[in-house]
Amino acid sequence: MFHTAHAAPAQAPKTPTGPLTLSAQGSFFIGGRDVTSDTLSLTPKYDAHGTVTVDQMYVRYQIPQRAKRYPITLIHGCCLTGMTWETTPDGRMGWEEYFLRKGYATYVIDQSGRGRSATDISAINAVKLGKAPPSTLPDLFAAGHEAAWAIFRFGPRYPEAFKDTQFPVQAQAGLWQQMVPDWLASLPTPNPTVANLSKLAIKLGGTVLLSHSQSGIYPFQTAAMNTQGIAAIVSVEPGECPKPGDVQPLTGIPVLVVFGDHIEEFPRWAPRLKACHAFIDALNAAGGKGQLMSLPALGIHGNSHMMMQDKNNLQVADLILDWIARNARAPRRGR
């Protein structure tokens, strides 16, 4: 059984230097469906009628020499793209490169309908052309700096920062540049990202699904669909955890949930932490292998919701990589 971790804080690592040698790198798309529409264009230069592919998922991969057994698939959250895992806003090494330097192949996705994964614009054009009522417009969301400040727990209110914040607030403009409109509410149900993650895990023959925030629930939903290819799940501050009654599909998959600091000071976050505690307890009671890692309980303070970009991001990465090394295992045969 695994419970909330209580241990001395890990020593902050030095940023690795020197050449980074890869055996392969590239990108591909997975999933998607074809949509035929008469509202693909508002300009006479292009035919409004045609077929486009939507709901596919962009994947970029990098594989180091002598890669370890299970690659890590990095899944970004709300209003962001795969850039989440790359260079930090103040120019430091992100988790993608650090994981590579630690011997893990990385697969960085853009969620379906985000970044380099296509969106379906036909509904918007249909309204502008008068072929559909405004009520059919997709629901879109963009997080303003002010709202994101509290959601990401940089401080109690914009632009006030916690005295111990680990986020590099002096470089906040670099984070705001990363943020994009969120098409989540306009996507089909279930979210095509979930099915695409399952296809990716099967394609790779085993991977650790590492998710964040909005996408925190996706690996669990993927496992409920098919456990094949899932060597472990790491969920960094998930927007929600599975309900205690939904743990059965996860009993054969090692699970780590990670939370940062100042949780109890935000009504958005305190209930989420409590629900994730209940989930981990239920998973372990059902014979699974789960752990909730509270960074403050380890003596590591000030981490924001964007801990992969915090000033101590490599220290947190080491804790996660240590857990993966000890717990990731050959996936069960899927359903």
Rank of each mutant, 00 (worst) to 15 (best):
G174K: 05
D281A: 07
K199I: 00
Q65K: 13
G245E: 14
E160H: 09
R326I: 01
D164S: 11
L319I: 03
S122L: 08
A161N: 12
P13M: 10
A185C: 08
G206H: 04
P133C: 13
A142M: 06
E237Y: 01
P254Y: 10
V54Q: 04
K289T: 06
L250V: 07
L319N: 07
Y218R: 02
S213A: 12
A195N: 01
A142W: 03
L175M: 12
A10D: 10
E264Q: 14
F154N: 03
L80R: 09
G239T: 04
T136W: 15
P13S: 05
A232W: 09
A147W: 04
A286L: 00
H301Q: 15
G287A: 03
Q248G: 04
I280A: 01
L209F: 13
L314V: 05
A24N: 05
G130F: 08
M308A: 06
R326Y: 01
P44T: 09
P254H: 12
R92Q: 15
T251N: 01
A232E: 05
V234N: 05
L256Q: 13
D120Q: 10
L283E: 00
A118S: 12
H3C: 04
A67S: 13
F141K: 11
L140G: 07
W269R: 02
L210G: 02
C79D: 12
Q62D: 06
K102V: 10
M179E: 12
L20F: 04
E160K: 08
G94E: 07
A150R: 06
C79I: 06
S211G: 12
P168L: 13
K14N: 12
Y98V: 11
